[in-house]
Amino acid sequence: MTEEQSYTTEEISKLLKISKLTVYDLIKKGDLVAYRVGKQMRIDATDLEAYKRRSKQLQSSGQRIPTPHQTSASGTQPGQGDFQATSLQSTTPVGSAHAITPASSAHTMTAAPRHLVITGQDVSLDILMRHMEKQTRDIRPLRSFMGSLDGLISMYRGESDLVSTHLLDGDTGEYNLPYIRKILTGRSYVVVNLLSRPAGLYVQRGNPQNLQNWTDLSKSELRLANREKGSGARVLLDEQLRLHGIPSTGLIGYETEETSHMGVAAKVSSGEADVGVGIEKAARLVGQVDFVPLTQERYDLVMLRKQGNEAWTESVLRILQSSEFRQELQSFEGYDVSRTGEILYEA
């Protein structure tokens, strides 16, 4: 290997036979040196070899290898079978590179930045990251595009710092809090609203199947473009199917999963599916697909309250409650910012 050779996080996960989440955690903790080229994380071959040498030395000396989580023989963490591949993103301009300095060399710097993992897909998180980078020089936000439920589980495991979630509890009609309370049992945290947005059905242009409400999903031979397990859209669909007594087996394509709202909307737009569940914004971006709004979902953020988090959590709250941040969100049609920055629950 040459010094010029480098790998993506996905290639590293395959080479080391570990999950991508573990790769991200190694980067976050400074055990594996990485840098950004535009929106992509890269690891040089020399840095990979250096990490492997350190691991072998620790193993031969009887010390614990500094990987953040044990992995199974298949390379996934226990209980992680439903997790989807994630990617990290920063708002560094495309084409630039910025090194992430490992903890082992932090003593050579006056103030090594702390890496914060933010989960979720909405564009509002990109805006939040930009404000965080401007206002808090000592942190560097990283983006993980996992679903709401998986994000909460990753927070429970200590893999994420700020989690976005839009999970409907069909029995109570409440968003997010029933899931947060169950998953983050024993943790101290704060839940704050980011925004509300319309959610409903993607249908083909002109709505030839005349799908107007959730009960219409019982129509025979309906082809579905579905989201992955753990996503807010998948939970919304499953809860509505349960509440209306509609068996998922009647939906062709229920087991086939897309990993984004855009992916679902594109399947419907192309004619490969008759219907999908998601947010209005994706329908506007994809085009050639109509949207049937059925609910207004609440999109919240969860931050753990623990020692060392105080400064950046307060900074995030100030950003969310600022008029500048709200004005940026209001530029996106369909976003309701009437409660943005409101603390909804504190454990």
Rank of each mutant, 00 (worst) to 15 (best):
G250Q: 04
Q63A: 01
T215H: 12
Y156H: 09
L344S: 03
T313H: 15
P113G: 01
T92A: 10
L162F: 08
E4W: 04
Q204G: 02
L294M: 13
D44H: 00
P68V: 12
T91A: 07
Y35V: 05
E159V: 00
G173N: 05
K134N: 14
I127C: 03
P113K: 08
L142I: 11
A283T: 00
A282R: 08
Q40N: 10
M262V: 13
A73P: 01
K182Q: 07
M132Q: 06
T8L: 12
L177W: 07
F145K: 15
L194Y: 02
L344F: 04
G287M: 01
P66W: 01
A45Y: 03
L125K: 10
A111H: 05
F145L: 15
M109E: 04
V163A: 01
S196L: 06
K52F: 03
D300Q: 06
G287E: 04
S331I: 14
I252D: 08
G151D: 12
R318N: 09
L48M: 04
G276K: 04
S260T: 11
K267N: 14
G95N: 10
T2D: 15
G250P: 01
S61R: 15
N226C: 12
V268G: 09
E272L: 13
F325K: 03
Q121N: 10
P113M: 03
G253D: 06
G341P: 00
